[in-house]
């Protein structure tokens, strides 16, 4: 919207006192007037805002009562932020709000949408109040707009950050689930790896395995990579590092399920397979692990 010559405002007032008395109002005074107006009309403006939210079909995941309760809190925090020009409380509220509504499936555009609606509702009420004094309206809007923009920004950024945090947390949870370290026998662990391995997952997997070796006092680990679709140099090196780190803890690693294609790739890119103890399939790997641990498995009789 209109951006008026703000630098001349102060100097003009200083150089010609009395000539342009009205112009000498500091923006903070204007904001105070604005805040008073918003407090006076709290009930009406808040309701208007809620109606607009419903009409625009935002926050559809929430009930009308919930929307009204949140709207009240947001409205009050909003006015407070305008008054004190301190955004910490609003920021904290935005985070808290996001934490509650993200699990309900509220989207980023909805949160940005409602804040912009509030900005609009309040601007309209300012138009209505000062429509007879156009100059004053302009100055009020000058004071209001930057503050309103900062508020909108604060709320939107708070929401997005919270959302990112939730997503990170969920990724973490999925990763934990996707790399189970299983104890199949005393001192024998199995780590079946399925899917795509990126460096981050490779690291987590290694850390989990190393901790597992320590807590279970494992001597042999079978890493089954039957479910790994592709392997590049980085992933292969990570696998070699996992094998080496396990050995530093005194555990022997057997890698199973290495497909001929992957084996071919590894040899071509120069990975030293000699450092790895490989067995064709998981069953063969477990059998070898049992031999290493001194078990002798025999069939007692033919099953009937």
């Amino acid at each position: 919207m209109s951006k008026r010559d703000s630098s001349s405002k102060d100097s003009g007032a200083r150089n010609n006192p009395g000539v342009d008395l009205v112009r000498s109002e500091a923006p903070s005074e204007l904001l105070r007037e604005l805040v008073a107006h918003l407090r006076q009309n709290r009930t009406q403006l808040r309701e208007e805002w809620v109606v607009r939210i419903t009409e625009t079909r935002l926050l559809t995941a929430m009930t009308k009562e919930e929307i009204f309760a949140e709207a009240t809190s947001v409205y009050d925090s909003y006015v407070e932020a305008l008054e004190t020009e301190a955004f910490e409380a609003l920021q904290a509220y935005a985070r808290n709000l996001s934490e509650r509504i993200i699990p309900r499936g509220v989207e980023t555009h909805e949160v940005v949408g409602i804040v912009l609606l509030l900005r609009d509702v309040l601007a309209r009420s300012l138009f209505a109040k000062y429509q007879t004094d156009f100059k004053k309206l302009n100055r009020i809007l000058d004071a209001y707009e930057p503050a309103a923009n900062r508020i909108a920004n604060t709320v939107a950024v708070g929401f997005v950050q919270e959302r990112e945090r939730v997503i990170r947390q969920q990724q973490e949870a999925i990763r934990e689930l996707s790399t189970p370290v299983l104890q199949v026998r005393e001192r024998l662990l199995i780590l079946p790896i399925i899917g795509v391995i990126d460096p981050q997952r490779a690291r987590q997997l290694t850390e989990q395995l190393l901790r597992g070796i320590r807590t279970n006092r494992a001597k042999v680990v079978v890493i089954d990579i039957t479910g790994v679709a592709a392997m590049d140099l980085t992933v292969a090196n990570n696998l070699v590092q996992t094998v080496e780190a396990s050995r530093l803890l005194g555990a022997t690693v057997i890698v199973t399920g290495l497909s001929p294609e992957i084996a071919q790739t590894l040899v071509t890119i120069g990975v030293d397979l000699g450092k790895m103890n490989t067995v064709g399939d998981l069953q063969g790997g477990i059998e070898q692990a049992e031999r290493l641990l001194g078990y002798k498995v025999e069939k007692l009789a033919e099953p009937r």
Binding site: E207, L210, R217, Q241, A245, S246, L248, L249, G250
Partner: peptide
């Protein structure tokens, strides 16, 4: 025989390329 290497330490070591090759290790 080198014993008692901590999991985090083992991880850092292999990142550095330190694998104590040819030396026996135990938990």
């Amino acid at each position: 025989v080198i014993v008692g290497i901590q999991p985090e330490v083992a991880f850092a070591m292999v990142q550095l390329g330190l694998t104590l090759e040819g030396v026996a290790t135990a938990l």
